[in-house]
């Protein structure tokens, strides 16, 4: 474990921890997004999918949850520590510093990250635990007596502020990944040298896919396609 302690102590090591946990996050959001899109197939399919995750796959799901919780905790802890360090590295700020090439995405990693953290907590309390239940639909069951998560999704996204919050959060998730999917490969030192190192077509594609894939669900409800 001494190698982990060494990593944890250095700035590059902390960034490597962020990159690995961030990539775990990217893997998760891609799978999660595909799962969510089943809402367009209909209530039966979606509730059956949820029942499968809570029934036969429950142990697997719990294993993944533990990995994700550890990843989020490490990611946020490293983000916090590195941000403090960066602040301390420039005690007297410039009167004027003009950003030249940094993207808005890169400059919103921190505040966007805070929004994502708030979103993640809200989202778990909303659809996973049901402590936040704006549509009063969490405890409903469908015709087959299954937990009717489909009905909860539809009822929730019909509430304007719930949809608005999810849609804004997904914009920031897309931005976070537009920078993060690109930068994490450089943090890990696995990106190939390039004549234009700031170009990032693949991460732009990942960002758009993730943003669109998640946003389609509230949009589908608002448009009445999912009802």
């Amino acid at each position: 474990m001494s190698w982990f302690v060494n990593l944890y102590r250095s700035t590059i090591g902390k960034k490597i921890i962020m990159a690995v946990t961030g990539l775990i996050g990217i893997g998760f959001v891609l799978v999660h997004m595909l799962g969510n899109l089943q809402v367009f197939i209909g209530q039966d399919k979606f509730d059956a999918y949820a029942a499968m995750l809570h029934g036969p796959l429950a142990e697997v799901v719990w294993g993944l949850r533990i990995v994700l919780i550890v990843a989020v905790v490490l990611h946020v802890l490293m983000a916090w520590q590195l941000t403090q360090r960066a602040r301390a590295a420039r005690p007297v700020d410039y009167r004027m510093r003009e950003p030249q090439v940094s993207t808005w995405a890169s400059r919103t990693m921190r505040w966007g990250g805070v929004l994502l953290l708030v979103f993640i907590v809200f989202h778990i309390l909303h659809f996973t635990v049901g402590v936040i239940d704006p549509a009063h639909a969490f405890h409903e069951t469908d015709a087959l007596g299954r937990h009717d998560i489909y009905g909860d999704v539809v009822a929730s996204f019909r509430i304007w502020w719930v949809s608005a919050f999810y849609i804004v959060a997904m914009i920031f998730l897309g931005l976070h990944l537009f920078h993060g999917a690109w930068s994490s490969l450089r943090t890990l030192g696995v990106a190939h040298p390039s004549a234009h190192p700031l170009k990032r077509r693949i991460s732009a594609a990942i960002a758009i896919i993730v943003w669109l894939g998640f946003t389609l669900v509230p949009l589908g409800v608002i448009a009445g396609i999912v009802h």
């Binding site: 590295a89 090439v101 890169s106 690109w182 943090t187």
Partner: peptide
């Protein structure tokens, strides 16, 4: 580098431009 109290790299890209 860490001992000298520099910050970490976010890969903003500003350094390359400067």
């Amino acid at each position: 580098m860490d001992l000298e109290d520099f910050g970490h790299c976010t890969l903003f890209g500003e350094c390359q431009e400067a």
